Computed example of a mutant assay.
Amino acid sequence: MSWLTRIRPRLTGFLGRRETPDNLWHKCRACNAMVYTKEFDENLGVCPKCEFHERIGPKERFAQVFDGGVHTRLEIPAVPEDPLGFRDQKKYTDRIKAARTATSEPEAMAVATGKIGGVDAVVAVQNFAFMGGSMGLAVGEAFLTGAMAAVKARAPFIIFTAAGGARMQEGILSLMQMPRTTVAVAELREAGLPYIVVMTDPTTGGVTASYAMLGDIQIAEPGALIGFAGQRVIENTIREKLPEGFQRAEYLLEHGMLDMVVPRKDLHATLARLVELLMRQRVAA
């Protein structure tokens, strides 16, 4: 037995084992680069190596978009949690509980008020980490709460979308949120208030087919997946290979479905300019 083998246990006991925090590093989903979590957070959840925009939740989004991160969350009216008594591999109620535990959020959409560029605004954020940001009764109610709060405050309504579509566990009730939210957008228009949509990765399904495509101004983050049906479904239907970058934000901008693609670091300044300009025009009118 060597001297090092004999002395190592004593040194380990004397010095103690150093623990490495599990959250010290973040692995980029696009380029697989390992980035210090602190550096990643300081860069607003964007990979400093490849500029990949990672998905973020309401807490981070509100902190980034409101002036100084100061905001007040709005309470969302309660809705039936399991109106159809749905069960697949798990009970629907168990899935909701697991999502709440994992995200520390009550549902897939949160709404808050605050100032953007000194202008009062209402902002809604969809959380993809909560059951894929799926649109159900609670999301529909949150959207209506935000829209009505904007009408009452005579303020612009801004929404950050991120969803896999309608929530299948609520069946037809989830699809009914499409016309409900469309009516709410119409009320914003009738009141002469700006409705700005910022589409983040991914925005798909019934969300794309309703309130995500009804904005007065359509913005997207770089590289965001935006569409209704999935790419493989479309290819199998039309039996053709789709173009490179199909359903990505840059492709949609090039083909006229978006007004602009804005990096996350520039979103606050861009929204501040837009709401100041749009609200100034409204006052003048």
Rank of each mutant, 00 (worst) to 15 (best):
Met1His: 04
Ser2Ala: 00
Ile7Val: 11
Ile7Asn: 00
Leu15Cys: 10
Arg18Met: 08
Glu19Met: 04
Asp22Phe: 04
Leu24Ala: 11
Arg29Gln: 10
Met34Asp: 15
Glu42Pro: 01
Cys47Thr: 08
Glu51Met: 09
Glu60Tyr: 00
Ile76Asn: 09
Leu84Asp: 06
Phe86Lys: 02
Arg87Val: 11
Asp88Trp: 08
Gln89Ser: 11
Ala98Cys: 07
Ala98Glu: 15
Ala99Thr: 12
Ala99Ile: 10
Ala102Pro: 08
Thr103Trp: 09
Ser104Pro: 00
Ser104Tyr: 12
Pro106Cys: 09
Gly114His: 01
Val119Asp: 01
Asp120Cys: 00
Ala121Arg: 01
Phe128Leu: 12
Ala129Val: 09
Met135Tyr: 04
Met135Lys: 04
Ala138Glu: 01
Glu141Asp: 05
Ala142Phe: 05
Ala147Lys: 06
Arg154Pro: 03
Ala155Met: 04
Phe160Lys: 03
Ala163Pro: 13
Gly164Arg: 13
Gly165Trp: 13
Ala166Glu: 11
Ala166Ile: 13
Arg167Pro: 06
Met168Val: 12
Gly171Pro: 07
Gln177Arg: 15
Met178Asp: 13
Leu188Cys: 10
Leu193Met: 00
Leu193Tyr: 02
Tyr195Gly: 00
Ile196Ala: 01
Ile196Cys: 01
Val197Thr: 09
Thr200Gly: 07
Gly206Trp: 06
Gly206Phe: 08
Tyr211Pro: 01
Gly215Thr: 07
Asp216Gly: 09
Pro222His: 09
Gly223Ser: 10
Phe228Val: 14
Gln231Phe: 00
Asn236Leu: 03
Leu242Asp: 03
Leu242Val: 02
Glu244Trp: 00
Gly245Ala: 01
Arg248Tyr: 07
Glu250Ala: 15
Glu250Phe: 13
Tyr251Phe: 15
Glu254Leu: 10
Glu254Pro: 12
Asp259Pro: 10
Asp259Ser: 12
Met260Phe: 11
Val261Lys: 08
Leu267Ile: 15
Leu267Tyr: 14
Arg273His: 15
Arg280Phe: 03
